[in-house]
Write a protein that binds this DNA or RNA. Structure first.
Length: 279
DNA sequence: ATGCCGTTTCGTAAACGA
């Protein structure tokens, strides 16, 4: 009676509701990836999607084909690069953009919204953390100050009762096991102690790395460079993360990396990460 | 290794990414 055994093994804290599935995906250009995005939305059917690097202004964002699949759309774009978006089958409420702490920062890297569920509501953030390379240029201190601003916002969000989901391209390799060849990243902004320490500070605030809550395995990657046959050699890194507040982590059911999309024609260099929450 | 590849832009070379 394997099915009965599986049902009995299900932790009792989970309900019989269908979990809410929340995804993050750096699509590296929403217009270039329009077909892939539609295909993936149809096959994966996530409830909420956090997109990064849409590389599109709000007016140019191809919302219609996405809305036709039943999604509401909120974007925070800019011309040429950066840009984040939220897609949700349920309405996106109280949408806010930008990260507090630097009025002069014009980069489109942060969008928040509340989505109501059967039992309450969740606050979801789609974030695109600065790359920071090369580290001997102003780009690296910009990354670090941006992370300090993120930590302040993350802490403020914990004061609410709602489960918080901070999902996106963090451009941080948290640990050596998150890279196929960690030695090759020692001079890179993604693997600097200052970057990793700030990511750990997010954990110390109480946020849980959803992937690490379900698996301690190495070899779990979300990005493979277009160059030098990185995908063919499985030379990957794990830099796309879903960070959950304690209340959200208590409801975590599964985490899946949709690695197969990296093998599609004209792929993004990142793949989606999908978490299921019983909320 | 100032390289590799891919997207975008007042474009056909340069900026940006990781």
């Amino acid at each position: 009676m394997p099915s009965r055994a599986a049902a009995a093994a299900r932790p009792s804290r989970f309900s019989d509701r269908t979990p809410v599935r929340i995804a993050t995906w750096n699509i590296n250009g929403v217009k270039a990836r329009q077909e892939s995005l539609t295909r993936w939305l149809e096959e994966a059917a996530p409830d909420i999607v956090c997109l990064q690097e849409i590389k599109s202004q709000d007016e140019q964002f191809p919302a219609e084909p996405i809305e036709r699949l039943g999604y509401n759309v909120a974007t925070h774009g800019q011309k040429g690069f950066n840009g984040v978006a939220l897609l949700s089958k349920r309405p996106l409420e109280d949408v806010t953009i930008r990260l507090d702490g630097d009025e002069a920062d014009e980069h489109a890297r942060w969008i928040e919204a509340t989505v109501s569920t059967e039992t309450g509501a969740v606050r979801v953030v789609s974030l695109y953390l600065p790359n920071g390379n090369p580290i001997d240029t102003p780009k690296f201190p910009y990354k670090l100050s941006w992370m300090d601003r993120m930590l302040a916002r993350a802490e403020a969000l914990l004061a609410t009762d709602e489960p918080i989901i901070l999902a996106g391209d963090y451009n941080v390799i948290p640990e050596p096991i998150d890279a196929r060849h960690p030695d090759r990243w020692v001079d890179d902004a993604l693997f600097q102690p200052e970057s990793r320490n700030r990511h750990r500070a997010l954990v110390n605030l109480g946020y849980i790395d959803a992937q690490r809550a379900v698996s301690a395995a190495d070899g779990i990657y979300t990005f493979w460079d277009y160059q030098a046959g990185a995908w063919q050699k499985n030379n990957g890194i794990r830099i796309d993360h879903v960070m959950l507040s304690p209340v959200a982590a208590d409801r975590l059911v599964t985490v899946d990396v949709h690695k197969h999309t990296r093998g599609w024609e004209k792929p993004s260099d990142h793949v989606p990460v999908v978490v299921a929450l019983d909320v």
